[in-house]
Design a binder for these strands. Structure first.
Lengths: 195, 195
DNA sequence: ATTAATCTACCTTCTAGTAGGATGACTGTC
DNA sequence: GACAGTCATCCTACTAGAAGGTAGATTAAT
């Protein structure tokens, strides 16, 4: 019953981890075929074209992120704790090598050569993510639990950039600890009371 | 005379801009062939394999960066001014669309699927870059012109991550100004005197 | 006369994608 | 309960074009 759709889920999961490793042009239907144990043509039955596959993958990725963000808000009332939980989640994923990069951050680097349908979804993810962080920054500033150096939006953009850059550096050095070295001071600085 | 080697330079220049757009798997010899106005086979004469081409490209990229860094040190005695000149250079490149991403930052995202020869050179670039920034941070701290929150190395890693992340965000939003929005506070924070 | 640079022509492998058939589960109908 | 029809899933077999790369001839510079 519920595992009727499990094949297309398997395909999406596999494609996601392949994209995380090498981006849109770094994997093929043949690669998925080998991992999932299904023929190439069967993948085309579930996702007629590669664009379809990656587009749905990114859409779902964003939906999952939205759900996770909503849960984060319920679990942690304080913005600082939500930021800590977010970077902590990624620190764990990078350390145990389950998910060493954000799918949308990786696709964003290839944006100029990506099909327009995928570009639109990646951009939608960044907008959503930026809006969430901006509102978190605003909330923290209003409550007096976060100290912003600039506008809520610019602090949010700085946060996004630093987190994605930290993933990049961790990958470049082949050292997961770099992610924490970079992201921990980022939150401490926001939490620090202005002297 | 000097333009005897200009074809291989043209190939390297072209490959560089193609990599900046879409990474290692985002371009082919046929793409270069069209732009440079030379046949595929002629490219193979200059660079027997794609790995040769990209490896030499990255080696030269690092050498050019080392030269530029040395010049920066001569032009600006103050570490803060060197950091400003560095981010200012990139802000200009991104704004006029000449070079919208660091070649090594882009290749680093694809590291797991890159040929090992290229991986080695990309890593060498990151080490060189990190060493330079660390010594800059140390110098600034010694002179009292920079205020470090952590170690010189961790500040350097934070700087690298944020700059690369700022390139990523500028590309994701399709808005060059995001780069400056993110990198300007980064330097202001280091320059600010501790209260 | 030699050598570097370029060409045409080709090869092999991979790429995304298609055509059409086999299987099997779920329907409604008698 | 048997029967036919429908539909989803997966298969084999195939295509056209792009990929990286090679062989060997031609051209041009020294």
């Amino acid at each position: 019953m519920s595992n009727l759709t499990s094949t297309s889920d398997d395909i999406l999961r596999c494609a996601r981890s392949l994209i995380i490793e090498g981006g849109y042009n770094g994997f093929s239907y043949a690669d998925i075929s080998k991992v999932v144990g299904i023929r190439k043509a069967s993948i085309h039955h579930h996702f007629p074209s590669k664009v379809d596959l990656v587009r749905t993958l990114v859409v779902r990725y964003r939906e999952d992120a939205e759900t996770a963000i909503a849960e984060l808000g319920r679990a942690y009332p304080q913005p600082a704790d939500q930021l800590r939980a977010y970077t902590g989640y990624w620190a764990g994923c990078i350390a145990d090598a389950t998910r060493t990069f954000c799918v949308c951050a990786l696709l964003a680097t290839e944006l100029p050569v990506l099909p327009s349908e995928v570009v639109a979804e990646v951009r939608a993810y960044f907008r959503m993510f930026s809006d969430w962080l901006t509102s978190l920054m605003e909330q923290g500033a209003d409550e007096g639990t976060l100290t912003l150096a600039g506008t809520a939006r610019s602090e949010a953009e700085g946060f996004i950039a630093t987190v994605h850059g930290a993933m990049l550096s961790a990958r470049a050095y082949g050292d997961p600890s770099v992610f924490t070295v970079v992201t921990q001071p980022l939150i401490e600085r926001l939490v620090a009371r202005r002297q």
